[in-house]
């Protein structure tokens, strides 16, 4: 009984989360992620310039940054309007 209550409250919460966090929150989050990755690359360049990180590692961070940025960018752009068949 107790577990059933726990599960159903969990399900309600999950549903609320999916419905509640609408497009705008998602967009804001994606924008934040893009800015975060841009800042990461700037910080990395500074570290690389002063010799704090080896070139091999810098390459890994850049790759992670470009992947993360691309993924966030895709979420940022609104999906193209659906074409209605004539």
């Amino acid at each position: 009984m107790a577990t059933r209550v726990a599960w159903s409250s969990l399900a309600i919460l999950a549903a609320a989360a999916v419905l509640g966090c609408g497009g705008s929150a998602r967009q804001a989050e994606a924008a934040r992620t893009v800015r975060s990755w841009d800042a990461t690359v700037r910080l990395l360049e500074r570290a690389e310039g002063s010799g704090a990180v080896p070139a091999g590692f810098a390459r890994q961070v850049r790759e992670a940054a470009s992947q993360g940025r691309t993924r966030a960018q895709a979420r940022l752009q609104p999906p193209p309007p659906r074409q209605r068949a004539p």
Binding site: R32, T33, R35, S36, W37, A39, T40, R42, L43, L44, R46, A47, S50, G51, A52, V53, P54, F57, Q60, V61, A64, G68
Partner: peptide, 28 residues
């Protein structure tokens, strides 16, 4: 190191920078 620049940690690759920034190559 990260918070003032608005960097959030999405990948592990970002974390070494928190020590490489104050301590240089030794930090890394």
């Amino acid at each position: 190191v990260l918070h003032p620049l608005g960097i959030q940690v999405d990948r592990y690759e970002q974390i070494p920078l928190i020590l490489a920034t104050p301590l240089g190559r030794a930090g890394f």
